[in-house]
Design a protein around this nucleic acid. Structure first.
Lengths: 177, 177
DNA sequence: GTTTAATATGCAAAAAATTGCATAAAAGGT
DNA sequence: ACCTTTTATGCAATTTTTTGCATATTAAAC
């Protein structure tokens, strides 16, 4: 149950709406955390009920109110407690590798097509992450310090996507063979 | 819901008990699929009820009966259908990176300790996978052909673990800095 | 000899995630 | 003008996963 903690970490960085968090999960932190919007809004509601986050409602003319959440003192405490507790390596469930494992039941054409499709999304993700890296590099020194740890996770994303593409090239050759 | 398909793929390879599957999820295919034993046994029950797998009970003196499951014709059909349906890239949820993202709330010592701990498990996994690769390489040609696709996924595991360790070295330096 | 790990299975309750449905206004494209 | 995407939120039902509990034998370690 770490969506809770993922949200707390993001709210520690800056107060956000559910929609803001969603965008982060779909974008900049999407290579290490994913969640659907329904899940995010539900967790925010629960975290607020538990007093771990504050809610400030910002009225907007015409539009529905914006609900801006921020970390509360107990929330920060809960986050720190979790951070200092060792965790087990996360489990990975990769359906694409399951499909490849049973590759002999497909045709080479189908396998190559799906590999290419996934390759495209990984390339896109890598490009996006490299863009973020450029932004980080252009930051003034004090900002770089602030984002030192997020940047480390970004590097994980970049190295991971590189590795994926490296593997994909190898796999493509091997399937064609 | 791909645990179902992961099980079908493994049963296509060879008839197995729930325990056999579990060992695979903890071992050779653990870098791309994970499941708890309760989940595996439950899925096997459901798959059997749905007629996608066959059950053969092997009595054992004293010990409880061994339940050996194998893929049925409808099961193979269902598997093939799934294999020929494009899937979305799997979502990743990595709690360790969440912790690192909020690294400024921890001490360097704690971060380095946890990094080292995770590094150790990744090193162990890599060694294990390299061992599997050696076994594969020593196989006679026709066996190599049979395991061509599982071997491809194994390569993914190896490249992925290498990348993890590469990143870990970079991260270690950056945290110490 | 006793304890621990491995073999082998499963139910039940709780928590978490997904899927389906739902609303509503603004902004941008054709 | 119309259509699609983006912004912005959420409930309800279902499915999936996790956690806790439960049993019982064998083999190995200490």
């Amino acid at each position: 149950m770490s969506l809770k903690h993922a949200i707390l970490v993001l709210l520690d960085e800056e107060p956000s709406t559910g929609y803001d968090l969603m965008r982060k999960f779909k974008g900049s932190v999407g290579y290490f955390w994913n969640a659907k919007h329904q899940q995010v809004y539900l967790q925010l509601k629960k975290l607020n009920e538990d007093g771990l986050i504050h809610l400030a409602i910002q009225a907007q003319s015409g539009k529905p109110d914006k609900k801006i959440y921020s970390l509360s003192a107990p929330g920060k405490q809960a986050l720190c407690n979790w951070l200092s507790t060792p965790i087990e390596p996360s489990k990975t469930n990769d359906a694409f590798l399951v499909k490849l494992y049973g590759g002999h039941l497909s045709s080479k054409e189908e396998l190559l097509a799906e590999l290419a499709r996934h390759r495209a999304t990984h390339t896109k993700t890598l490009d996006y992450l490299l863009g973020l890296e450029q932004s980080y590099r252009q930051l003034p020194a004090h900002q770089k310090d602030k984002y030192q740890y997020p940047y480390l996770t970004l590097r994980k994303g970049i190295i991971g996507e590189h590795a994926w593409l490296e593997w994909a090239d190898e796999a493509k050759k091997e399937i064609k063979k």
